[in-house]
Design a protein around this nucleic acid. Structure first.
Lengths: 335, 335
DNA sequence: CTGTTAGCGCTTTCAG
DNA sequence: CTGAAAGCGCTAACAG
């Protein structure tokens, strides 16, 4: 391995500027006191030498890394991608960097990531839609200086907690479809190891029962994130009379929409479809997708998570919990 | 700020295990020699104490951080999201972590990111679709131990270089539309500060001229990444006879598709549309989108970048350049 | 096979 | 306002 490119150190700057390392450090951090004259001089020498402080050394000395670990099941999901952008922006503005790990929906990988974040001495972690059971996730979070989770099961009090009220959302979807005249609803879900996966599944059943629509396991099919189309086919085969479909997210809904087109089931006349998330492409589909959208933008959700985390790191945490609500965006697929 | 959670150090383990710190270090890294007996004992004590090595300290001592800086214009883009997943996976498998920064298409931010990566002493950087001029980007990359860029302008020899042959791709698109009977082509592009943005723009003009289709600035419109629909409207207003449309990417194409629906221009009968990237949703659109897809999957592109970078870090770089080719995926929007 | 010494580059603390 | 000394937790290099 090639030698690390030799970099200028504080000592180099100190020598050339004829001051002590401490003076350089003080100027660098604008902390402590020094004359304006030395300040100018030191800054000048720094620029001249092209000095870049070594954050690794600083981290070791201060026990702060200014790094935040972020775990996500899938970077390429339209939903997570937006949330991550919001998180990254706020962290950046506050001088923090994001160490991003993709679990690829693999809980062993998630275990390993949580361990590594400990070794990296990150100042805090943000976890999106964990696939770990609540107690296991919690035991990792306890070891961190600060943590915020979005749509995860965790023991109370150990992390900032942002989550969606899935019962309320699902009721909106089910009632909307019922009012549109649907008699037989179907649900296409994702793996149920996550909070949202489990909640949407369970709340679909509950919401249907509440309004007197009969459901059984026949009306429900679980699929991988890009297999919405196949799942819809299976569902229509099993329950041909399905006339309303709720999908875990808009990607799955898009697959279902396409399959309806292929099977010549008209949307919304024969089947009405509702998705979740209102991803960018949802309104561009034909028919445009009716969907449950968070009242807070996805980017803002990520930003809130970042702010909560930074508050917790600095010990001035105000809120411990933020409940997110969906609103129904009525478009052509389920008017 | 709350005190750093007190963590076990190698010294603690050494003391409890009645050996020197070096012995613990050797066992930890499985490097150097030690008896099986001490190994067992040390490992046992480590587990007992819940010891986690401090990577910050290790980085300072070894001058290796096992961190890679990755810069991307927009995490939430369907294309970049997939590439990033590939990069992250390979880095992870090789023991590296990804420090991810989103420039939000802001070149000042990109400057700042490149500076910060230097201070973080990352072992290498991957840059996706930089918005910086070639010479500026190059001067940053020179300071890094290793670098790989995807679709960026850089001076030769200073970074691994992965890029697409845009002339070839654009020729395929233009010829395909011409053969389908289109007489008046339009192009909807993205900001031209990036390699692909500029190339697709220029090569569209060139490819049209080659096959004898007349183009002028009227046939071309530039827009923001989520404004494809608006751009299409403007184009149709300006050049109503447009009967073939090439879009910088599939998100833009989806917007154009939707606008055609709203304007009652039939696709492909009245207007044929071709996109780029073959994002997951492209084939789910109605009509399904004809698009230029990389022969290498997006995830694999990211993985190749990661592998190239690791090779360069370890000084055994084989390839300096990888040229990516598109293939035309013919679907309903331009059969 | 194991221990000792001396840093890595910075900051904290205490003196002046 | 400035400097000297010590140490963050680990490992390279040398001894034994």
């Amino acid at each position: 391995m090639p030698k690390q490119k030799d970099r200028i150190t504080i000592a180099d700057v100190a020598e050339k500027a004829n001051v002590s390392a401490m003076t350089v450090s003080r100027v660098l951090n604008n902390k402590g006191s020094f004359s304006e004259e030395t300040r100018q001089h030191v800054l000048h020498v720094m620029r001249e030498l092209g000095y870049r402080p070594n954050r690794v050394a600083r981290s070791l000395a201060t026990a702060k890394t200014l790094k935040i670990g972020v775990v996500v099941p899938s970077i390429s999901s339209a939903y997570f991608g937006e949330v991550l952008e919001g998180t990254e922006r706020v962290l950046w503005e506050c001088g923090y960097h994001m160490l991003l790990c993709n679990t690829a929906v693999d809980s062993r990988r998630e275990h390993a990531v949580m361990d590594l974040f400990e070794e990296d001495r990150v100042d805090g972690v943000v976890v999106l839609s964990s696939h770990l059971p609540g107690d296991e996730l919690s035991s990792y979070l306890k070891k961190q200086r600060a943590a915020v989770v979005i749509n995860c099961d965790v023991e109370p009090g150990i992390a900032g907690h942002i989550y969606t009220d899935e019962l309320k959302s699902m009721r909106m979807a089910v009632k909307h479809l019922q009012q549109a005249g649907c008699k037989c609803l179907g649900y296409i879900g994702l793996a149920i190891e996550t909070y949202a996966g489990r909640e949407r599944h369970d709340m679909f059943i509950r919401a249907c029962e509440e309004v007197g629509l009969s459901v059984s396991s026949d009306n429900i099919v679980i699929c991988d994130r890009r297999m919405g189309g196949l799942a819809a086919r299976r569902l229509f085969k099993r329950v041909p009379e399905t006339d309303g479909l709720i999908c875990f997210n808009d990607e799955i809904a898009a697959g279902a929409l396409r399959v309806c087109f292929e099977l010549q089931r008209r949307v919304p006349e024969d089947v009405a479809i509702v998705g979740f998330d209102d991803i960018f492409l949802a309104e561009l589909l034909v028919p445009a997708l009716t969907t449950l959208r968070l009242k807070t933008t996805k980017q803002e959700v990520g930003a809130i998570a970042a702010r909560m985390l930074l508050e917790r790191i600095e010990g001035r945490s105000t809120r411990d919990e933020v409940v997110l609500e969906h609103e129904l965006v009525v478009r052509e697929s389920a008017p």
